[in-house]
Amino acid sequence: MKTIFKRPDSMTDMVTHYCPGCTHGTAHRMVAEVVDEMGIRERTVGIAPVGCSVLLYKYMDTDMHQAAHGRAPAVATGVKRVKPGLIVYSYQGDGDLASIGTAEIIHAANRGEKITVVFINNAIYGMTGGQMAPTTMPNQKTTTSPYGRDVNDVGYPMRMCEMLQTLRTPSYIARASLHDPLHSVQAKQALKKAFAYQNENKCFSFVELLSICPTNWGIPPVKSMDWLVERMLPYYPLGVFKTPEDEE
């Protein structure tokens, strides 16, 4: 019998706690597949964030380190600097990475840490029940922007890829989306590229994945995909923003 689909070796045999329609599970699986395909499971250390994906450490069958809110890039730096032979990645939400952990992500990128960052942009704080994130869309209603995000009051959503792109230090910066199978395949390719750059000890690598949060958006899963396409895609363009091969 030929196996055509199975759980990646780098994942544990567990049912995830995610809400129906949530894309965290998709992103987890993609990371695990990349780790499998590159044959790096036995030297990978994943850094779990604070957020809905805090339990990433339960789902990944590799060495894992659970970090404080926003500090995953600093923890990853500590691991990688003392054990350069390891493959180290952090997996972070948009509250974690773009709000409380802004300093840590910018400086890890600017130092050119040879780590990979998987950034889940779902335009909201999932774990704590749907508060506004730095990535929340203009006029988007959340529990702490009940009248919609007022850009005159709290500014515009932060575009992390575009910010990181401005840094002089070579890096791989890409944004992909998980809203349909075709884009998910592209997202996985971006992840694979990111891990490959690390594996070659080339540069800091960063992949933003546009994601959905049906529960806290208050929109059913399939419609959430449409909302992502209509609202997020125009503001968060997909593509590769920077590669280490770029000319200065």
Partner: peptide, 15 residues
Amino acid sequence: IAASQMVFGAAGTGV
């Protein structure tokens, strides 16, 4: 904040 979190990461590897 970052320095001590790097210590956390490094300490995790047993050095």
